[in-house]
Every structure is written in C-alpha cells, then in structure tokens.
Design a protein around this nucleic acid. Structure first.
Lengths: 225, 225
DNA sequence: GCATAATTTAATGTATACATTAATGGATGA
DNA sequence: TCATCCATTAATGTATACATTAAATTATGC
C-alpha cells in the first residue's frame, strides 16, 4: 500500500508483510497474544523493525499493542463485522456511482467482467477458495474504478480485517449463487453510466451480504473470530 | 485515539501529540521536509520515539516518510480535498441515518443542539475561529451518535487532514450562514427518527460544502495547502 | 491466615552505536 | 567539455544495551 515496489528491502517492510501473512493464514490466531521478542526471533530480526511493523499493523486495525501484555491479534465480534460491512457498503457504493460517472468504455471494464466470469466458474466447480479470491478481486477492482485513493485505502483496510474471519465462515455459509447476478447488475449500470442504479444495486448487494455473515456468526455463537 | 487517558507518559505518545500540534498550527508547513534528527532534537528526545510517532502519523495520512529526503508534511491538492469530502459525506450521512434509528431522546441530543447554538453565536459575533471549532464539534458529535467506531475513527482522520487547510481557507470563504439551517434540519430528522431525511439532508450539506472549498482552492490557484 | 507492602522479574520504552544506502561531488577518461 | 565512475557523506535502518514500569511473588505485619 505504501512503500516498496516488488522486493521488500527493509526488515521493517518485510516484517509488515510476513506478519500480515501469518495473520491472514491463521497462524497467528484471532485473540492470541505475542511478545515482541518472540515475533522478532521467529522473523529472524531484532525487536526494532518488529516494533515498527506492529505500529503499522495497529494503524491498519489488525493488532492491538497492549503494553506488558503482548500484542493481540485483534478479534472480530459480530458487532465489529457489522461496522466493517457498513463502511464497505457506503464507500463501495460511492465508488460504483463514481465509476459510472467516469464513462468507462467496454474495454475499460473488461477486467471487471473477466473477474465476474472467474466467480461463475468457481461456483460451477464449487471451489469456494477460488470464489473468495475472485470476490476480493471484484471488490478491489470496483473500488479502483471509482478513482478515489482514500476510498481505495480504507476499503482495502476493511477487507483485510474481514479476510481472516472468512477462514472460519467460508465453508459454513450457503453457496453465494445470488452474488453474481448482483455483480453483473453493478457492472451493467456502470457501463450504462447510471450512477444511481450502480450505487443502489451495490448497496443492496452488500447489505444482504452483511446480514448473511452477521447472522451466521450469531447463530454459531462465534462471539469473536 | 488509541493509547493514553490524560497524561501522555511515553515519549512516543508525546511525540505524536506534539507533532500533530505543530502540523495543525502550521509551524510545520504543508509540503515542508524535516529530518528525523532535527525533529528529535526540537522535541528533546532521541530518534527512536520520533520514528515511531512518524509511522503513526503516516498511517493517519498526515506525513509521507521518504527515505533520505526527510519526512514531508503532506500537502493537500484540490483533488485530495474532493476525495476527503466525498468520504466524509458518505460516512457522516451513514452516521446521521444510524443516529436517527437509535431513537435518541431530546435529552440525548441536547449536546448536539448546544453545539449548534454555539455556532449561531459565533456567526453573530463574526468569530470564524469559534465557528470552526464548533463546526468540528458538531460533526464529531454527529458521528458519535451513529455508533460505529470505525466510522468515527475514519471521519476523525479525514477531518484532521482537512483542518490544516482551513488555516488558509477560513478567512477567504463566505460567511457560512446557510450551514446552521442544515445542521438543525439534520438534528430534527434524527430527533424524529427519520433516517432517510437525516442522511439526505446531511449529504446535501456536505456536498455543498465540498463545492465551496474546492472552488475556493481552484479559484485562488492553491494547488496545495 | 489474610491483607498489604516491598522485592523481584519480565516485559516494553528509549538512547545510542553501528550498518547500510542513496545522493552528492569530484576525478578521470575520452 | 561532457559523461561516467568512484569516493565521500549524510541520511535512514537496525541491533543492542540500558531505563522504566507494571505485574507477580514473596515477605511481613496484624
């Protein structure tokens, strides 16, 4: 998001990247506590770059630094999830509306259409992992089309926070058949330059998704993931 | 936003607070570059806590850390300002809608009404500084009523980024007479539990404000503030 | 035996020395 | 004269030693 191009040179940057991987893969589980010195040792570097990385990750909402109690991988409650989905709903709908106003050509929107096709294939093959990755890509691409770098950054942060929770929920929820109709409707509205429809359809899409996830967490008594 | 209650104990926390003051007061001007060692000396501490503070401030969008070129106090272009206002418009309107749904009593809303009254007085006395502070307070209180901690945090960050620019624009723009009608209309809609109206009125309010500010910057050829 | 206070301990917070790196300026060559 | 390469330098990046602090544990008084 901020620093290097391809090869992360600084230890600090490496620490951010590797800690993110450990968090998203679940190796650093939600709610677990970790000492700076342990993390430093496991990453093969001194505490200094690890501390700097932890400050960055705290700013991204992924960890809580709690003096003398270790850094906690931030757990997400159903309330947190609802908050995050509400933010995503608003900002992505704004992005959809702005995208529609940009007057993109069919060619400009090819990538987004391709991503929707990927989701279709994933659904047919019942490959939920592939579907999730394509869904992430769809939302990221949509937001990019809105051309607001702050919206992009915030949406990315919120998506990151949700990603870990999906490790748990992905195989519990119903197959998201409905989703792709919504995605295509948003794409069509953008292509037609209809900002209101793009925003409205996307808003409904996200609102429905929020309900599915939050209900799922509450039904299964997952007070934090 | 994150750590201490009243007395900042750690140097790192002090550095964040004091650097923020220096930025918002204009003593560290937009676009200016500064060495870590200079900042450390002027704050009377070593580089370590200053570096940590700069990482936090970078996360808040207030500075850019550019290796070997010093940290730059992030300047805002008219495009940046438009982006920020768009984010604020969406999230505050969401907050207004959610506030309306909370079913607050007149008593709960007393603080917000008081703040609007403060703005009225400030306008009568033509005290733009007081008006600006009350306007900040209004928006902060509104967002709090929406009960979404992430919306609060993001709105705060965006407001912070705008605050420095207002040093320049505050005395250039027309007296914001219209503003308070809007504020009262939002308050009334919240009190009436009318979420759609609250969101719509607030959206129109912010959209108008965005236009005033962006036009002002462009008219005066302020490519960055 | 229980509560409170003092001591110990284990973690974070800070300073500093050192390593690394990219920009600068100068020398060397064509 | 100009371009390229090398050396210098000045900044950031990292490791480490040390200071500080809050929690845990033990000791002490009642």
């Amino acid at each position: 998001m901020n620093t290097q191009d391809h090869r992360i040179r600084s230890s600090s940057g490496q620490a951010v990247e590797r800690l993110r991987e450990l968090i998203f893969s679940g190796q650093l589980g939600a709610g677990s506590d970790h000492l700076e010195s342990e993390l430093a040792e496991s990453l093969g570097m001194s505490r200094t770059p690890v501390r700097e990385a932890l400050l960055v990750l705290e700013g991204q909402g992924l960890v809580d630094v709690r003096p003398r109690k270790g850094v906690r991988i931030k757990p997400l409650s159903p309330v947190d999830m609802a908050e995050i989905y509400d933010v995503l709903t608003e900002l992505e709908s704004l992005a959809a509306a702005n995208a529609a106003r940009e007057g993109y050509s069919a060619d400009d929107l090819q990538q987004l259409e391709h991503t929707i096709n990927l989701m279709d294939s994933a659904l047919e093959e019942n490959d939920r992992g592939a579907w999730a990755r394509a869904d992430d890509a769809f939302h990221a691409e949509l937001v990019q089309l809105g051309r607001n770098s702050r919206v992009e950054a915030i949406a990315q942060m919120m998506s990151d926070q949700v990603r870990r929770a999906r490790l748990v929920t992905l195989h519990m929820r119903p197959v998201p058949n409905r989703s792709n109709e919504d995605h295509r409707a948003v794409l069509d509205a953008i292509a037609a330059g209809d900002a209101d429809t793009a925003a409205r359809v996307h808003r409904e899409h996200r609102t429905a998704a929020k309900k599915v996830i939050v209900d799922l967490l509450e039904t299964h008594h997952l007070s934090s993931v």
